[in-house]
Design a binder for these strands. Sequence first.
RNA 1: CGGGGUGUAGCAUAAUGGUAGUGUACACGGUUUGGGACCGUGUGGCCUGGGUUCGAUUCCCAGCUCCCCGACCA
Length: 411
Amino acid sequence: MYQSKLFTKTRKEAPADEVSKNAQLLIRAGFITKEIAGVYSYLPLGLRVLKKIEQITREEMDAIGGSEMRTSALQEKSVWEKTNRWSDDVVDNWFKTELKNGTQLGLSFTNEEAFSNLMKGFISSYKDLPLYPYDFKTIFRNETRAKSGIMRGREFHWKALYSFSKDENEHNEFYKKITDSYINVFNRVGLGGITYLTFASGGTFSKYSHEFQALSDAGEDIIYIDSTKNIAINKEVLTDEVLSDLGVSKDSLKEEKSIEVGNIFSLGFKFSEPFDLTYKNEEGKNIPVFMGSYGIGISRLMGTIVETLSDEKGIVWPESVAPFQVHIISLGKNEEAEDLYKKLTAQGVEVLFDDRDTSAGAKLADADLIGIPHRIVVSAKSLEAGGYEYKKRNEQSSSIFSFEQIQRTIS
RNA sequence: CGGGGUGUAGCAUAAUGGUAGUGUACACGGUUUGGGACCGUGUGGCCUGGGUUCGAUUCCCAGCUCCCCGACCA
């Protein structure tokens, strides 16, 4: 893409009303813009990143048998009354609206009811199970206090998968599988080294749930890490009983602040019972479906990557989620920069080409702020030296590369 | 939801009971071209409603907004 055609501009200063690093950098670099507190629009660069994270998640869900679909945002009152989650006294973060005729509707703040109700129409026999439908969706939560940029919004993008299994054993097998897929997702988006499988409260559904917590001072959670077992325990559930369950000694734990980037639950019959979601087994007997719930905050993940991987000059995107793979910067007048841009683009490389008529300093500073992993400067100086000046965003030194060397490096 | 703040140009900010200055961005002209380069010219602004006052961007009240602390957070 020609940068001169990118309508967003970078800013030297962050808006005064943003405190979090993720919002400051993403707004300065032109990835997002704030609409209202806790609500952000995604600009061209930001949407590219969001889609990359979504695609990685999609690939991992599909790899374990997930079926992507899309549940509606508008939800019917009666469905939520089945689980007693319609009342504002029970759920305090509903956004509600109504039809012209007065019928009340809610905007999804989560998906269990929608999926349970919907799957009732498709599950009738043991032959239908197990099933793993999932969706990416905008979720609405009427938070009394939005904060932390895109990490705790009133409107955000997530992935939710629900498992429908014949029994607990079948469920447990899948639960293990999806735990591994979640680890794959966090590894692939560049948070591998700092994300811990964390024991957390299972609520009313089961003894434990599992969270995936990424270490960051910007986090709102406190976890205790056992580095020998490579697991963590959420402060909320740190009791002697939990320690003995997990075979962990209190002395080996290290306290850290972290961001919850994913959460998986065994739901059991919590939803299948109120929705009368059953299947017929081989004897023709009705058996309740055993369910599980698995979420990843896609937009929160984007914020977490910025929080944890940026430096004083700007964002440092991992290659897997960067809006473009390569940033070509043309300094001064030359044909070679555009030639290189066309050649790489023709090979399917995602390139942002800074063809703007602006100073070298501005271009270089913008490149650092935007954070594309591979930077190639084409200038009189580089051409005299025999080619293109290549530098990685997260490294200090640059080298003069030929076209072939560039191809080899970025592939 | 409780408490505390905030609101001046696209953005960041200053001053002021007598209609507002700067930086940046933007437009134009010129000089520049390896870390947000320089000179000149120009466009553009006091959240909304009420009150006090001869006069309110400034003081008071209300509303709204956004931020912070706490509570909340499948």
